[in-house]
Design a protein around this nucleic acid. Structure first.
Lengths: 154, 154
DNA sequence: GTGCTATGTTGGTTGAACCAACGTTGGGTG
DNA sequence: CACCCAACGTTGGTTCAACCAACATAGCAC
């Protein structure tokens, strides 16, 4: 009579916002292990991915691209620098900027994260067929795109 | 050159866990106003819904049904009692229990929340057709059901 | 040179989820 | 009946994500 009593009101179950919240929590739980094993957090993964995909960038540029606050970005880059995943140096051309570059160690951590995160996706979507997974992605992208529009306008 | 620079790595955009997280954030932003207008928070709404749907219950029973921690439930019920949405009395039959009952004021607050939250759902799903909304709900329910299984086992 | 903006940093706050301990109360077993 | 264990509500935390304000340094536009 513990977890078995879990039985939210029908009205709540029917709310898309509630369903999304629960699904996101499921995703969080499943990815948490992968992040913990790599000694990283979500933002660490995002930053490493951005660096691998688009090359070195300043902290502010990374923050804008990923939608991460400047303060949080400073902490993330400091942590990544601390464990050797990233090198940080002053930009010679613009001495306000910190140019962040991924290191060989960072690439290895990123590869490990990629594997763990991919496995978590597989587990998360295990109840869905390949077609359903594509459809879910398509629908979520539409919802998120709408949100990004709202944000861009202010 | 502010929000327009928002452009997450392709690898990130392709992750269902990331899409779910962004979509849940969109839902959070859209529902936040409705909650703020009623001076309530998410758990307040859940508790009021459970009380309306299933009648008076102890804090522990509410917590189990909704998946809310005992400590958080104590705070929520105290807040709801504070603004008159809920009455709390010791159970005569089992004096460990607090029997929580929704009041007329609580019903009114709940009705207001229902309206605001429903409007937020509409805005959230505005880019989707009726068929797509049903499909999204169906897919999310499958993912969440799987998560609930995992939780029940431990 | 004088504003104005951008950058990185430090100092917060908020909401949520979760965990540990404690006194009170009930229930079950000896 | 006495005893121990479980449940309940409460208080005390922690962690993480997201967000805001202020500031010194540095570059840019005029």
């Amino acid at each position: 009579m513990d977890e078995r009593d879990y039985d939210p009101p029908q009205r709540l179950r029917a709310l898309p916002s509630w369903q999304l919240n629960r699904a996101a929590q499921a995703a969080h739980e499943l990815t948490a292990d992968a992040f913990a094993r790599a000694g990283a957090r979500r933002h660490h993964y995002s930053v490493l991915l951005a660096l691998r995909e688009s090359g070195p960038a300043s902290q502010a540029a990374l923050g804008r691209r990923l939608g991460i606050d400047r303060k949080d970005m400073a902490a993330v880059v400091a942590a990544l620098e601390g464990d050797g995943s990233v090198a940080r140096r002053r930009d010679a051309g613009d001495r306000r900027r910190n140019v962040v570059t991924i290191t060989a160690d960072g690439e290895r951590t990123l590869a490990q994260l990629d594997d763990g995160i991919a496995a978590a996706q597989e587990e998360l979507l295990s109840p869905l067929t390949a077609t359903e997974r594509k459809e879910l992605t398509r629908l979520l992208e539409r919802v998120v795109a709408r949100r990004d529009e709202r944000r861009a306008r202010g």
